[in-house]
Amino acid sequence: MEDNAAVREWSERMQQEKGDSLTEGYESELWDSTRISVTQNDLQELRDIWNSWNGEVKQLFYCNYGDLPYLLDVKVDKYLFWALAQFWNPTYSCFTFGGVDLVPTMEEYMALLNCPKIQADRAYSRPVNVPPFLKKLMNITGMSEQWVATRIKQKGDSKCIPWRNLRDFILAHPDSKKRVDVFALSLYGFIVFPKAFGHIDEVVSDLFDRLDKGTTPVPAILAETF
């Protein structure tokens, strides 16, 4: 903690001297403790589904949603998270390592997703008039209002759909495009924007509903990272 405090003090002093947005008299304060949760959804069923698909279906996914499935194989290193937390600078929303400030960038996320349909100049923003969750799920799945309505659950302050319902849909639906769409929705809900454990949150469907229009989710993902 002493080393972390020294790095923080040095960083802020240098940035103030070079002209900076910090207000005069600003003093840095370190948290007494930091709680980090590395709990994540079980991704094995998603991996099994992906591995069961043939090359044609996988190529259909890549064309529409890019390299998202590679996130299924990313291992979460809890010790790395603990180490990084001590170098997080909340004032600048970056990691400070000695004389280097490190932040995730738009370009890195664009390269990570590697989706041919994404248009970098069309950033996602939540529209004022958003269709109800039920309508969005009907559009994504192609299922009836009754089918969707019986599967929507309330979790806290938001509506969700359990992963088990989407899993059964992916395994049974005859339309490859619909299976791919719901699989992509599940990846966004389980990995990129996880909220309700074991469920896909309504907020994810807001963004997902705009992806087929070429909208890039990268700014939203970057904001979620911070």
Score class of each variant (00 low, 15 high):
residue 67 D to F: 14
residue 21 S to P: 05
residue 2 E to S: 13
residue 44 Q to K: 14
residue 186 S to E: 02
residue 41 N to G: 02
residue 198 G to W: 07
residue 52 S to T: 01
residue 89 N to E: 14
residue 113 L to E: 10
residue 41 N to P: 06
residue 12 E to N: 09
residue 138 M to L: 14
residue 76 V to W: 10
residue 62 Y to Q: 12
residue 88 W to V: 09
residue 136 K to A: 04
residue 143 M to A: 09
residue 56 E to M: 11
residue 173 H to N: 15
residue 109 Y to W: 14
residue 40 Q to H: 05
residue 54 N to S: 12
residue 3 D to G: 13
residue 145 E to W: 12
residue 127 P to T: 10
residue 56 E to G: 14
residue 220 A to D: 01
residue 96 T to Y: 01
residue 206 D to W: 14
residue 182 V to Y: 00
residue 179 R to K: 14
residue 222 L to Y: 01
residue 190 F to W: 04
residue 11 S to T: 09
residue 17 E to S: 10
residue 43 L to F: 03
residue 132 P to T: 15
residue 141 T to V: 02
residue 89 N to L: 06
residue 109 Y to K: 04
residue 45 E to P: 08
residue 113 L to G: 05
residue 154 Q to H: 08
residue 118 I to K: 03
residue 9 E to H: 06
residue 220 A to C: 05
residue 45 E to I: 11
residue 160 C to D: 01
residue 34 T to W: 03
residue 209 D to I: 05
residue 179 R to S: 08
residue 220 A to Y: 09
residue 67 D to K: 15
residue 99 G to K: 05
residue 158 S to E: 11
residue 90 P to H: 04
residue 155 K to C: 13
residue 37 S to T: 03
residue 174 P to D: 12
residue 203 V to F: 05
residue 198 G to M: 02
residue 186 S to H: 04
residue 6 A to N: 09
residue 174 P to L: 01
residue 25 G to W: 10
residue 202 E to P: 00
residue 29 E to G: 03
residue 138 M to F: 14
residue 94 C to T: 11
residue 66 G to E: 07
residue 56 E to H: 11
residue 167 R to Y: 14
residue 124 Y to H: 03
residue 182 V to W: 05
residue 158 S to T: 15
residue 37 S to H: 02
residue 6 A to S: 10
residue 224 E to W: 07
residue 65 Y to E: 00
residue 117 K to W: 02
residue 173 H to V: 10
residue 48 D to C: 12
residue 33 S to D: 09
residue 111 A to Q: 05
residue 94 C to F: 01
residue 199 H to Q: 10
residue 24 E to Q: 07
residue 141 T to K: 02
residue 93 S to A: 15
residue 65 Y to F: 11
residue 95 F to R: 02
residue 80 L to R: 08
residue 7 V to R: 12
residue 175 D to R: 10
residue 148 V to S: 00
residue 3 D to Y: 08
residue 20 D to G: 15
residue 177 K to N: 14
residue 26 Y to M: 13
residue 159 K to P: 00
residue 192 V to K: 00
residue 87 F to P: 00
residue 82 W to I: 06
residue 6 A to F: 02
residue 137 L to A: 09
residue 107 E to M: 03
residue 22 L to C: 09
residue 199 H to F: 09
